[in-house]
Amino acid sequence: MDEKKEFTPSIIYGLCSWCGTGGSETAGAMHLQYADNIRPFRVPCTGAIDPVYILRALIEGADGFAVSGCHPGDCHFDSGNYRARRRIAVLKSLLDTFGLDSERVLLRWVGHGEGKRFADTVNEFNDYIKEMKKNPLAERRDT
């Protein structure tokens, strides 16, 4: 087994309780397979995800953090996803500023019925993070 295969990334997936979670349910109903090392993290709305949660995950051991919720225009709370997008933009530009792998954070909208899109997103991100290897922050004791 080569080294790449051995590395199973730890990935947190922030899903809103409406579309994101819905997408994962649809994927299940469609019997789609997806990487089982992702850990779903259900929130009422993507707008409820403070960048601090993402930072904490990345600092304490996650190799990647994905966020999915309702497409623009479909937010259950009207505008939570637009706010989430702004927060993630700020977070990613901070990570870029300090050379801390902003690609470890992924934002992609997934609708309730989009089971395939959900499964694809999980697999794609999982493969991507595998290529990136372990998150160096996770192993630093001086954080």
Partner: peptide, 8 residues
């Protein structure tokens, strides 16, 4: 902010 989303 399209640049901050990952296209499908």
């Amino acid at each position: 902010l399209k640049d901050f989303e990952t296209p499908y």
